[in-house]
Simulated scan of single mutants.
Amino acid sequence: MESSKLHITDVIDPGDALGEILFGLIMALTFTVGSRLIFSEEGLDVRELIVGTIGCNVAWGIIDAVLFVLGTLFYKSRRVRLFRRIKAAKSEREAMSVLRKEFPIDSESFVSAAADEEALYQAMLGLARHGSPAKFRLSRDDLLAAFIVFLLVSATSLPAVIPFIMIGSADLALRASNFLLIALLFLTGCAWARFSDAKPLNAGITMTCLGLVLVGIAIALGG
């Protein structure tokens, strides 16, 4: 199980993966919480809720996967452009300026000595000048990461609809569905803390509150 997790985090950044899960949970909660508001007035159409929730998350899973591929292409294209700019620089000072602008160390969350920064940029400059641009194409891992994005957003609809399949009472199933999704928001926050400098409890509570606020905004705006 652990090797599977390590493989996934090698393919896609943990922050991106957790962000996709958060997005999927918010989409599903928008459907289920919104349905609760309609339920008391018109009655809940369980089949319509299930189809709508799954369909919406699958559709957005496809959209997010395509956007991920486009973002990857943009990133790689930008890196090729950076490489060519360094190659075309008329002086070392100009090339160093390009590198410093693209990789600003002063924005990182650590303090380093000026001599160490200079040595790092010199090493990067040497690699760029002696190397050659790689072939610009999508790799297998890029496509796998896009597929993972699709699965993460799509799969978050399952906790929302499973209670309606297992519980006969639509009202009770809706409560269970909302509870599961809110609990997953909390667990997503705890997982976020694992990859960052945060306390799991605080991150879980923050993620839950943030998710519910975003759901409220989506419902209020007709989303």
Rank of each mutant, 00 (worst) to 15 (best):
L152G: 03
F150L: 15
L82D: 00
F83C: 03
G131H: 01
V80S: 11
L151T: 04
P159T: 07
A160H: 04
A173L: 06
L99P: 00
A155F: 14
L120Q: 05
L152C: 12
A115W: 12
P163L: 08
P104A: 08
A146N: 01
E117M: 08
D142C: 02
D116T: 10
S107I: 06
A115F: 14
L172Y: 12
I167T: 11
L82N: 00
A89N: 06
S112Q: 09
D141A: 15
A88G: 06
E92K: 11
F150H: 03
G168L: 11
K90S: 15
A155M: 13
E92C: 10
F150E: 08
F83R: 01
F83S: 01
F147S: 14
A88I: 00
P133D: 11
V153W: 01
A160V: 04
S91K: 02
S169P: 08
A170H: 05
E94L: 09
A160I: 04
A173C: 07
K90I: 13
K135W: 06
G168C: 06
R140F: 13
A95H: 02
R137S: 12
V111S: 15
S169R: 11
F136S: 04
K135D: 06
L144R: 13
A113V: 09
S154V: 05
K87A: 08
L125H: 03
S91C: 07
A170I: 00
S109N: 13
A95C: 04
I148F: 11
A128F: 13
R129S: 07
D141I: 06
A146K: 01
M124S: 04
S157K: 05
A113T: 11
R81W: 00
R84F: 00
L138H: 03
A113S: 14
K87S: 07
P159I: 06
E94Q: 12
A160W: 01
F147H: 05
R100W: 06
S169K: 08
I162V: 15
F150R: 04
S109Y: 09
L152M: 13
I86T: 01
A88D: 13
A115C: 09
D141N: 14
D106C: 05
S132V: 11
L99Y: 03
Q122K: 12
I165W: 13
A160N: 07
G168K: 10
Y121Q: 08
K101F: 12
V161H: 11
L152K: 03
M166L: 15
L152A: 14
E117A: 11
M124K: 02
A89Y: 02
L127W: 01
S91A: 08
A123V: 07
D171E: 14
R129K: 14
A123T: 10
V149M: 07
H130L: 10
R84T: 03
S107N: 10
F150I: 12
F103P: 02
A88C: 05
R140Q: 12
L158I: 15
A155H: 02
P133N: 10
A134P: 00
G131E: 03
L127I: 05
E102M: 09
D106G: 07
T156E: 09
S97Y: 06
L125V: 06
S112L: 12
G131Y: 00
A145D: 00
A173S: 11
A113C: 04
D116E: 14
Q122G: 15
R85D: 00
E102W: 03
